[in-house]
Design a protein around this nucleic acid. Structure first.
Lengths: 137, 137
DNA sequence: TATTGTTATACTCTATAACTATA
DNA sequence: TATAGTTATAGAGTATAACAATA
């Protein structure tokens, strides 16, 4: 048979990744969106809340509740931008950086295991292709 | 910088695919879940509603409304399984098969264009890797 | 009693539009 | 007036449990 749609396979892969990441994040008291936000901050993808919403694909109004929770837990700070006080600059705290770093390390281990069934060259090509397609948007 | 998480890139790719597929499906009056269901039937992945729910990753109780709509439009039929009358066998009608086939063809064109920026060997490796990982679950 | 499909219910999530503060 | 962030609220989507029919 012909291969399934790219969308079908991508959705299946994402479901599997989410399934494997969920317990890792839960062990640190994080939901998926929490991690997505923290990882974006770790990657330096965004400074203001608006940029963070764009970088993560999350609606700006829904992002706020996330940030509220992360701020209460002392994982991030929100401070007015001196240059334009309408903006709030979101930054990782030390403990926020530690927490997301630890999760990310465990997730990398999970990813390695997930891709273990692939031949080495195929795995490398998959990663290169993804980076080329959606690595740095 | 290091590459983003596999989950981050997979989610971005899926968002892009959904964005590109949505207008294609809308032109045939289909929502994403409608197409997912019809494509699963086309692929012969499932016969009963329970199997269809498992194959598509959609909750069984939510699948029902989808099937109601597709049945009303004459795209599928639901008939009791003679061997076990608790089961309902879901099948594509002729027009259902035509419609999903046409959508699928347009989506394949879209996929080809999406992957056009990749070197040929990388594109082939990406497809092989996906099929190996989640192609026939 | 167990299972498939269905419906009903409450709960959560999402989208829209207002509101505040700043520019 | 326009924009970043926030809040409120109405609507859509989701999960849970109960139900009917069949095994």
């Amino acid at each position: 048979m012909d291969r399934p749609d790219l969308g079908t396979m991508t959705a299946r892969l994402l479901r599997e990744i989410v399934r494997l990441e969920t317990p890792i994040l839960a062990a640190s008291g994080l939901e998926m969106w929490d991690y997505v936000v923290l990882a974006a901050l770790l990657g330096g993808d965004a400074a203001t809340q608006r940029e963070l919403a764009a970088a993560t694909g999350r609606d700006q109004t829904r992002l706020i509740r996330n940030l509220d929770g992360l701020e209460e837990r002392g994982l991030i700070t929100r401070s007015p931008d001196p240059a334009d006080r309408r903006n709030k600059v979101v930054a990782l705290t030390g403990s926020g950086r530690d927490l997301v770093g630890a999760c990310r390390a465990r997730i990398r281990v999970m990813e390695t295991e997930l891709l273990l069934s692939l031949p080495a060259d195929e795995r490398a090509a998959l990663e290169r292709a993804l980076v080329r397609l959606v690595g740095n948007p």
